[in-house]
Amino acid sequence: MVHSLPTPGSTQPGLHVQGLSRHFSGVKAVDDVSFDLLPGEILALVGPNGAGKSTLIQLVSGVERPTAGRILLGDVRLDGRGPERIARLGMGRSFQTSRVFPALTVWDSVRLGTQAGLLRGGGTMHKDPGSGHGRLSNPLAEIAGELLGLPGWRRRRAEADARAETALKRFGDRLWPRRDQPAFSLSYANRRRLEIARVLAAEPRYVLLDEPAAGMNPSETAELTDLLLALRAEQPTLGLLVVEHKLSLVRRIADRVVVLNQGRVLATGTPAEALDDPEVVEAYLGRRRTRPAESDAHLG
């Protein structure tokens, strides 16, 4: 009998976070966290302030380097790679404070999301992600294409613009009519939408959203919830990781929830299981003190 050992770090598709830690001068912002995000899954990451959710997004997207642990996309190691490379492997992300290239117009801002795909030969992020880790077209060809308006380049550009337009129009009349305004003139909620549109314009395979509903009122939050559900219906293989405080949104869209507290995973499960776990309730509301309070009043 020939034993076929399982390949280390398995080739199972999906995003795999294994034993990830990030320490900042003694503070354990993320401490030995593991979870998987499978294609087609919506995973919500919740937890009180300072639990390490945003740090986790920073680590997965390559903006910060982990102190320990591994991040795999399929069988490709992500930890140690820079944010550009990770993005070009098909991982899109938004930021907690929406980063929208303020002085650019809304249209230009969303078009930047399609540029990397355009450089890879007009393809989108999710086609053949592994091959050569995405070779970019030659800069001289790019200059010639842009300066002379070469037909091949114009076709690529038109395709990219079509993707950008689709992404903007996802938000109905919120963004498309404002496409020639500078991004900084948008409302807070619209800036969030613009950033999400830019991420989606790249047609990524996995998306990390950091508090997408922050600054939105309840009806706007509901609108975003519907949009994310529609997205998943359209793209059944898209993996979505959402950090969100609005648990109403989380309860509606998430397949699974990972609750973080003080950098560690406190609970995992369906929204109902995880969010009603007594330990989780305690993490959000604080725990009851065990000692009577007035026992030792001596200062002052």
Binding site: P48, L285, G286, R288, E294, D296, A297, H298
Partner: peptide
């Protein structure tokens, strides 16, 4: 919070913003 309880006992006026609701309400 031990410290804050002592301050309270000493008569200190406090305006406290807190996410940790249970302990703050105590």
């Amino acid at each position: 919070y031990d410290v804050l309880f002592r301050w309270k006992a000493a008569g200190q006026t406090i305006l406290l913003v807190e996410q940790n609701a249970r302990i703050a309400l105590e």
